[in-house]
C-alpha cells in the first residue's frame, strides 16, 4: 500500500521539527528516512503511524486520508528502537497480541503465531520471556509481532541501532530479504548512510526538518542536490576549488597536465588507502586508493606527485559542487 504525506509540519514547544514535508512512498518499496539526529526523521515516522499528532498537513494510505485516524485503526506495523517487548508476556504471547485484539480463534491464532515464529527463526524460544532473549532476537520478535496483524505498511525506527556491528549486518540483509518476501511497503529511519544505501530502494534525506533530496541511493550518491547530501552520503574532498569524491581523483607522475602536490600523510585502512596531499597553493586534498593501486604506486610522505580527475569518470564534467546552488 502506498503512503503519502504532504505539507507535514510539527513543532515541539516552539521548536520547528518538521517544516512542510511532502513525499510519496510507492507500494512494496523500502524507503529509508536518512538524516542526522534532530533532523525530524523519527517524528515523521511517528506521525505516519498516528502516534504523534501533526500541526498541519495530511497523511494518506493508498490515497485514503488517515490524518485524523487513531493509530489503532491505521493498520500500520511499528517497531521501536528499543523493540518495546511486552515484558510480562512470553514471546508467543507477544506475537499473538495483535491477533487476540482482532479476536482470531485460538487454533488459528496458534497456527499463525507458529508460522511467524518460523519466519523470524525464533520457534525454539516461543515460551521464553523477553529478558531471556538477546537484542537481535528481541528485534526479530518485535518484527514478528508487528507483521502478525498483516499490516499494510511497516515502520521501523532505527531498527539496528542498538545491536553490535556483526548482528547488525546480519539482520540488515535478513530484514531486506524478509521485506521483499512479504512484499510490504516499509519505511525505515536511520542515521547510518551505509545502512540506508545497502537496504533501501529509495532514500529520503532529511536535515533540520526539511527534505534535502529523495531518490535511488546510487543516483543520490552520484548526483547530490546539496553540499549537505554530498557530505552526508560519503566523504568529499576539495580539489582546485571544486568538491569531489576522493575516489574520483587519481595520483599520477609529475607533469602530464596534472596539478603538482606533496604527500603529507598516508593512512592504510586495509582495502582502502587514503593519501593526503598538500598542493603548491597550500590547499589540502585527499585521494582514495585501493590496496592494489597503493601497492603499485607506493606513495611516501614528502614525495611529489600530480593529482587529476580520473578520466573514466563522468564526474569530470559534472563535479559535485556544480549542484551546490541547486534549490534546497
Amino acid at each position: 500500500m502506498s503512503v503519502s504525506y504532504s505539507g507535514v509540519t510539527k513543532s515541539f514547544g516552539g521548536r520547528l521539527v518538521l517544516d512542510d514535508i511532502s513525499d510519496i512512498v510507492n507500494e512494496g518499496e523500502l524507503t529509508a528516512l536518512l538524516g542526522p539526529s534532530g533532523s525530524g526523521k523519527s517524528t515523521l515516522l511517528r506521525i505516519i503511524a498516528g502516534l504523534t499528532p501533526l500541526d498541519s498537513g495530511r497523511v494518506s494510505l493508498a490515497g485514503r486520508d488517515v490524518t485524523n485516524t487513531p493509530a489503532r485503526d491505521r493498520h500500520i506495523g511499528f517497531c521501536f528502537q528499543d523493540y518495546a517487548p511486552f515484558r510480562h508476556l512470553s514471546l508467543r504471547e507477544n506475537v499473538a497480541y495483535g491477533l487476540k485484539v482482532q479476536h482470531v480463534a485460538r487454533a488459528q491464532r496458534r497456527e499463525q503465531v507458529d508460522e511467524l515464529l518460523r519466519l523470524v527463526r525464533l520457534e525454539e524460544f516461543a515460551d521464553q520471556y523477553p529478558h531471556q532473549l538477546s537484542g537481535g532476537q528481541r528485534q526479530r520478535m518485535a518484527l514478528a509481532r508487528a507483521l502478525a496483524i498483516k499490516p499494510d505498511v511497516l515502520l521501523l525506527d532505527e531498527p539496528f541501532a542498538a545491536l553490535d556491528a556483526q548482528v547488525r549486518a546480519e539482520l540488515r540483509s535478513w530484514v531486506r530479504t524478509l521485506q521483499q518476501e512479504v512484499g510490504i511497503t516499509t519505511i525505515l529511519v536511520t542515521h547510518d548512510q551505509v545502512e540506508a544505501m545497502e537496504i533501501a530502494d529509495r532514500l529520503v534525506i532529511l536535515n533540520s526538518g526539511r527534505i534535502e533530496q529523495a531518490g535511488r541511493p546510487s543516483f543520490v550518491y552520484d548526483h547530490p542536490a546539496t553540499d549537505f547530501v554530498a557530505s552526508f552520503l560519503g566523504p568529499i574532498t576539495s580539489f582546485g576549488g571544486i568538491s569531489y569524491r576522493p575516489h574520483e581523483l587519481e595520483i599520477v607522475a609529475l607533469g602530464d597536465g596534472a596539478e603538482s602536490a606533496t604527500v603529507s600523510e598516508v593512512i592504510r585502512l586495509g582495502f582502502e588507502v587514503r593519501v593526503v596531499l598538500a598542493g603548491d597553493d597550500g590547499t589540502s586534498t585527499w585521494v582514495q586508493l585501493t590496496h592494489d593501486q597503493a601497492k603499485h604506486l607506493n606513495p611516501g610522505v614528502g614525495q611529489r606527485y600530480g593529482i587529476r580527475v580520473r578520466s573514466s569518470k563522468a564526474r569530470k564534467d559534472a563535479p559535485l559542487s556544480s549542484n551546490v546552488d541547486a534549490p534546497r
Partner: peptide
C-alpha cells in the same frame, strides 16, 4: 517503563 509498550499495543489495534 515508558510508553513504547502502550504505543505498540495501540498500533496492534488495541483500545
Amino acid at each position: 517503563v515508558g510508553d513504547h509498550q502502550e504505543q505498540t499495543a495501540a498500533t496492534l489495534g488495541a483500545k
